[in-house]
């Protein structure tokens, strides 16, 4: 933290120096002399000659072809009735956007996606941080525990979804069996079949799979803490709770920002478990934005309407992410 602060100060100092120099005549003369020399050599800059752009061209081409161009196409198709197969489509103006609003697809998807994201961000970060704090202390077999926590992240979503559909299975699933084993009544437990809890059920599966990755990032953050600083805080009379709340958490605020943003983006793009475990059901209870895009595009064959929903999702995700980044960064500076 202190190093980062001093680097920032140095940078500010350099910038200031440059601004001062920029106004002086000798500096201008020097710049003009360098520019004319570069021009003679066919270069626009001594530090970044124009030919260097050629090295960026392959990556730029891939970026344009596989990201920018499809994105432009998506905007284009959102105003058409393209069905994904027949290229004889017509322009329908804003009809796709109007239909998304009218049939309730948008409201339902955004609500489900936001709930999913909140659950995922909250649970994943709290669990990841708690375990990272525990596994950062000197306990026996901590390497084994760290590995165990990370193992779920190594499985594919398909495998995890399939396994958990048996965990949640009513009447004879693992969860029901465990509750029955300890004497509880789980005969009515039907997580994936209940529209009130199905969304939380699949969000928790994603938390289970992803908390290992979150934990690793927190662990990395915690291990960069200066032990002298912690010791100083202890000498000043901090108990463990104060140490964590007033020293450790502020010092890993950048790590928290990264984890929260990553979880939020993952939550906003939720698709896998809604597709694998519930097919968007019961009813439309687990229809997330991305699941609806898929359903409309590939089940209903309304590629134009799916593109319209994608456009809206695109802006929603950008707005939410930028807002979070802004708030978190501001908070980071305050801390």
């Amino acid at each position: 933290m202190r190093k980062a602060y001093s680097s920032l100060e140095s940078l500010r100092g350099l910038c200031g120096l440059r601004i001062c120099l920029a106004g002086s005549r000798p500096f201008k003369r020097e710049v003009n002399s360098v520019k004319s020399r570069a021009k003679r050599l066919g270069l626009n800059s001594l530090t970044f000659p124009r030919r260097m752009y050629l090295f960026a061209a392959p990556a730029l081409a891939l970026f344009l072809v596989f990201w920018v161009f499809p994105l432009i196409q998506m905007f284009f198709y959102s105003f058409t009735n393209f069905n994904g197969i027949n290229f004889n489509y017509d322009f329908v103006g804003l009809k796709n956007f109007v239909n998304i609003f009218k049939d309730g697809t948008l409201g339902n998807s955004i609500r489900n996606t936001l709930v999913y994201t909140i659950v995922m961000v909250g649970a994943s970060n709290l669990l990841g941080l708690a375990i990272a704090l525990a596994l950062n202390s000197n306990i026996r077999l901590k390497t084994l525990f760290r590995t165990c926590c990370y193992i779920p992240a190594l499985f594919s979503a398909i495998v995890v979804g399939f396994i958990w559909s048996y965990v949640y299975m009513p009447r004879s699933g693992l969860l029901v069996s465990l509750i029955t084993l300890v004497g509880g009544d789980a005969s009515k437990l039907n997580i994936l079949g209940n529209h009130k809890v199905a969304l939380y059920g699949i969000a928790l599966v994603e938390v289970w799979k992803g908390f290992g990755s979150t934990m690793i990032i927190y662990l990395a953050g915690l291990q960069t803490l200066d032990e002298n600083l912690l010791e100083a805080a202890r000498i000043d009379g901090c108990n463990e709770w104060q140490l964590m709340r007033l020293v450790k958490l502020p010092l890993i605020s950048a790590t928290i920002t990264i984890n929260v943003i990553l979880s939020a983006i993952g939550g906003l793009k939720a698709f896998d478990y809604a597709f694998i475990m519930t097919s968007g059901g019961p009813g439309k209870a687990t229809n997330t934005l991305m699941f609806n895009v898929y359903r409309i595009a590939f089940n209903e064959q309304l590629m134009g309407k799916a593109s319209a929903l994608s456009v809206i999702s695109f802006f929603c995700i950008i707005i939410v992410t930028v807002l979070m980044l802004y708030v978190m960064n501001k908070r980071e500076v305050e801390l």
Binding site: S165, Y166, Y168, M169, P170, R171, N190, I191, L192, G193, N194, G281, P282
Partner: peptide, 10 residues
């Protein structure tokens, strides 16, 4: 009654 939580395979 629990059919909504059961897959076809199950």
């Amino acid at each position: 009654s629990s059919s909504l939580g059961i897959s076809q395979q199950q």
